[in-house]
Design a protein around this nucleic acid. Structure first.
Length: 281
DNA sequence: GTACTTGTTAAACT
DNA sequence: TAGTTTAACAAGTA
């Protein structure tokens, strides 16, 4: 699922393709994906000024308005150049990779290429916001974990009065942005902390370990261009390479990479949670 | 037919 | 009031 590393990868890919180019036309294939009946009319003819990531949100800045995109679980944002080639310039020869397809919800013609928003489950959205609406929306988000604002003491302030499970706190986008089910499990394994531990019960040493682990797992995945299980694709339609670097997520039944004990899986807060009974306390 | 997958939020709690 | 919990959303896959 697209979490911070995946969204960051997409934004970097697209930045090289769409900035300073004009949006020539827009096709809204699924009206429920957008928030404005005149979405296409309002976007067509404008130039892309910038594209940035805020948490798991993608913000495309136009002259006086913003396109805000959330991929939720199965959303994709894929660029196709005029030659309709895949990442690396390879021409599309495989059936099923043509775009738009039946899951394409919005299509943009930008410069000489096309940008497709695909989403199997229709959870994702493409919204138009003015600067006031964008500010109000972004103000609800918590700290970015890869900025210098995210210090160990900041993390301490977040967890110190919370009795709920540390995993749930880390998933709360109003506290810390960008972590989803994959990287929370990875960070807690790396820090040696049980996902169900009460947030406020963490010791000072555990807090520091967790702070470092969060940054480490996110940076590793960005380096590997994100984790692809099924739906995630980068901005050019290719899979990410971080799957084989995962230490616990989706490794239930396999040996722990620290101690060899079989990795467990159970539901916590309605989410599949993976952990090692020996290494995490 | 049923269980399962997850990011976010609204609503219902304590 | 603030923190916490749960259900709901959607739709394809196993």
């Amino acid at each position: 699922m697209p979490e911070l590393p995946e969204v960051e990868t997409i934004v970097r890919d697209l930045r090289a393709q769409i900035v300073a180019k004009k949006i020539n036309s827009v096709d809204v294939f699924n009206p429920g994906t957008v928030n404005d009946l005149k979405f296409a009319d309002k976007v067509q003819g404008r130039k892309v000024i910038s594209i940035n990531r805020y948490g798991k949100n993608i913000v495309i800045e136009l002259s006086d308005i913003f396109i805000v995109i959330h991929l939720k679980m199965t959303g994709q944002l894929v660029w196709r150049d005029a030659k309709q080639t895949l990442a690396g310039g390879h021409p599309i020869t495989k059936v099923g990779l043509e775009l738009p397809n039946k899951f394409t919800r919005v299509g943009f013609k930008i410069g000489a290429g096309k940008l497709y928003f695909n989403d199997v489950r229709k959870f994702g959205w493409v919204h138009l916001m003015n600067s006031d609406e964008l500010c109000k929306y972004l103000n609800k988000l918590g700290v970015e974990p890869l900025t210098k604002q995210f210090t160990a003491s900041h993390l301490n302030a977040i967890i110190k009065n919370r009795t709920t499970a540390i995993k749930k706190v880390l998933l709360d986008q109003s506290l810390i942005v960008g972590l989803g089910n994959i990287y929370v499990d990875e960070a807690l394994w790396l820090a040696g902390i049980l996902p169900e531990r009460s947030a406020k019960s963490l010791t000072s040493a555990e807090l520091k370990a967790l702070h470092q682990a969060i940054k480490k797992v996110l940076k590793l995945s960005i380096k590997n261009r994100g984790t692809s299980f099924s739906d995630y694709r980068d901005g050019l339609g290719a899979k990410g390479g971080n799957f084989k670097f995962l230490k616990v997520y989706n490794r239930n039944g396999a040996p722990c990479l620290k101690c060899g004990t079989v990795i467990n899986k159970k539901k916590l807060g309605g989410r599949g949670t993976h952990w090692c009974v020996i290494c995490q306390h």
